[in-house]
Design a protein around this nucleic acid. Sequence first.
DNA 1: AATGAATGAGTCTTCATTCAT
DNA 2: TATGAATGAAGACTCATTCAT
Lengths: 231, 231, 231, 231
Amino acid sequence: MAGEKNKEKLILDSAVALFTAKGFQATRMEDVAKKAGISKGLTYFYYKNKEDLFMALTKKAFDQFKEEFREVLRSKGKNGLEMLCDLMAKTVNFAKEQPVYYQAVLNFLDVLKKYNHPATRKEIDPLVLDSVHFHKMLEIHLEPIKLGVQMVSQGIKDGSIRPELQPEITFYAVWAMIIGFEKMSGPVGFEGKETKISPEAWQPGFTKLMQDMLRGTIQATRPATVQTSLF
Amino acid sequence: MAGEKNKEKLILDSAVALFTAKGFQATRMEDVAKKAGISKGLTYFYYKNKEDLFMALTKKAFDQFKEEFREVLRSKGKNGLEMLCDLMAKTVNFAKEQPVYYQAVLNFLDVLKKYNHPATRKEIDPLVLDSVHFHKMLEIHLEPIKLGVQMVSQGIKDGSIRPELQPEITFYAVWAMIIGFEKMSGPVGFEGKETKISPEAWQPGFTKLMQDMLRGTIQATRPATVQTSLF
Amino acid sequence: MAGEKNKEKLILDSAVALFTAKGFQATRMEDVAKKAGISKGLTYFYYKNKEDLFMALTKKAFDQFKEEFREVLRSKGKNGLEMLCDLMAKTVNFAKEQPVYYQAVLNFLDVLKKYNHPATRKEIDPLVLDSVHFHKMLEIHLEPIKLGVQMVSQGIKDGSIRPELQPEITFYAVWAMIIGFEKMSGPVGFEGKETKISPEAWQPGFTKLMQDMLRGTIQATRPATVQTSLF
Amino acid sequence: MAGEKNKEKLILDSAVALFTAKGFQATRMEDVAKKAGISKGLTYFYYKNKEDLFMALTKKAFDQFKEEFREVLRSKGKNGLEMLCDLMAKTVNFAKEQPVYYQAVLNFLDVLKKYNHPATRKEIDPLVLDSVHFHKMLEIHLEPIKLGVQMVSQGIKDGSIRPELQPEITFYAVWAMIIGFEKMSGPVGFEGKETKISPEAWQPGFTKLMQDMLRGTIQATRPATVQTSLF
DNA sequence: AATGAATGAGTCTTCATTCAT
DNA sequence: TATGAATGAAGACTCATTCAT
């Protein structure tokens, strides 16, 4: 029937809603079930445990995230540099619209770091390591990165990005800026007495710097007119 | 007496050690007390509750973090650009040596974002809002930023950073890159079959990009022979 | 079809295998079904509930157990005393080869004791009382005993057992020894530093004592040359 | 105050009462606490978990059991054979008065058997293996046996038990009879239409057989007069 | 300042059993 | 007969926090 989503998805959606509102820790499995309109037990039928559920959620977040990358890459009539700017805008938007998904991806990055070092791998919750979804992500987690690297390569080819840059490192740098930007919007995005930069200026200014980094500043002598006012 | 640190510090040090090894959630107050060689009850004499303890720890992390900024600024014979590079190196090192402190600072940033938006402020754990240490940080959290902005200003003054940049935004951008860099070292810093960039190339390549961003790429015309190989 | 045992038996066999490996409590109905290659629901078609399944198993254990008695009684050319020794050997072997069946029988004995006292009958799991199989056993549980009593009577008749013994009580005593023997093989059957009796000496020594008890010790005057070495 | 037993004992006593009434499985830790008049948490302060509590109980059962042995051995003016008869009477009484303690000891015997065989040791509940009390019992579990062996030795010395018997094996045999007797009192101790032996005859008859076994049946020609009526 | 016994709310998880199909 | 999704009661265990001493 219409409106009769399959249970698995129903549970995931409840989880997203509740994790968003109260956080992972504070959300009880029972509430997830209740919100999904099913029994507690069924939750455990579809997901081995709370961590498994969270990993499934993370996996979905990842897929959706990757889709953003794909959309950017698919868009016609844009050069590589513009794509990266789009990617940033989309990511920032994604973080705002789907905070839980975004946090889940970041959290996965943290776990991944531990996973990649034998010394810290044992610190990872065993239930996470048990989850099928975690291992699926282990396999695919580099795919969005690859798409990003393609954007840089494309930019180099179409001349929007300076040719001496190495695509992999460059994309990682862009990606780092994007993630960092989102993180810093905490203290910045606040119209308090202390801040000198308005939140409005912050994102475009940041974007421009990123562009400068990628294209070189030969152009900076000319058309900076408009943007300069932002600074 | 000599060797008899005051209890308050003793507790904090235990907490750091345990949070490092097992994380905040997994660490029990009892263990903190045991490690500090005191009773559980006394812990609650010095810190209202677990969150308060964590906020105290965060405050200390912040102070230490600010000290890193100060040291960079204090160093003689360096231009602004070099200072920012130093800051990055120091931060990365800080994250490696004092992971709990670093995470505490990042966590504070997340809380701060919620705090700055009336809509999300209520999601913050009341015990956090109760903590004196949290409020102290609210007062001082912009200080490191200010020091960073000074570095950019200094760079503009001494010519190492292009003059058209606006110091505040520029520093936030640099800061974002640094934080993002650290976060991305999860998937990157791993010598797997998938990764094309070696961890060794990653940090210097990243740094160079940051420098390009700040100084402009006029220099790029005389190609940076050595580094090019990295790219 | 050949190789297509009926479902009922299939389930019972799965149960035996799993109870042996993990015990009754730790075995889940789902696993029983899985091992039997059928669905969970079907299990409940053939057996009302887990207890009923266990009672069915116990019933089968009982039948098999009784068969051991029959075999002993059937064997030609043995006197009563020899039969009882055979019974002991067979029982010990049964306990080793079919531990679940043996335990099931013992468990039935415990339940039976509760059942026989109005005061404790209410402590029995209602599901057990509900089971048809339990009531079947109530009817037949004395049959093996009767066969055992026949052996004693036979022994008295053929002179291998002293005539002044009362068959019923005597058989119960023999039976008690057998059950006790099996129970005690825990601490005894272990070649530790503490035990002075070797497990090898234990069973024949025990058997000899039982024989002494039954036949009288007239023979003891002509010392049992061979067995003495065991003592 | 008077009546203010220490908590540890209080908990144990509650456990005994509840295990007696409802069995180990059916008893909830919460009920144990409630009956002891304390909080659930405190139960876990004194005992690591339910299994640990049960092992503590078993340990106490063991101590008390050993005490029965000691009392028998201590009794003046009795020969070895009489001691063994006393031991049987005491044990049967113990099983009746302290069914949980008695069952706990039997259960320990079962666990012990698994423990003594490397192949089955892994089947033991890890929580049991974790318990200090379990390991204490591992150390002392042969002590009652030793006391029993002393009784036999004493009997041989004082002439009440025939001299050709080997004390260790003989005591194990006696002990097996006692345990078996208790187990068999299920089907026997019931005044139903089926049973031919009255429960009254059962115990003395059984005892006499045991005596015959131990002392030899030379005497059987003479004084069987009284007991014969029992048969 | 200091102790540590005592509390009890909080939650995950299991699994026998049912029932629509 | 046969399935397996769905239920929900049941229970062990944790741990931050308090408080009498």
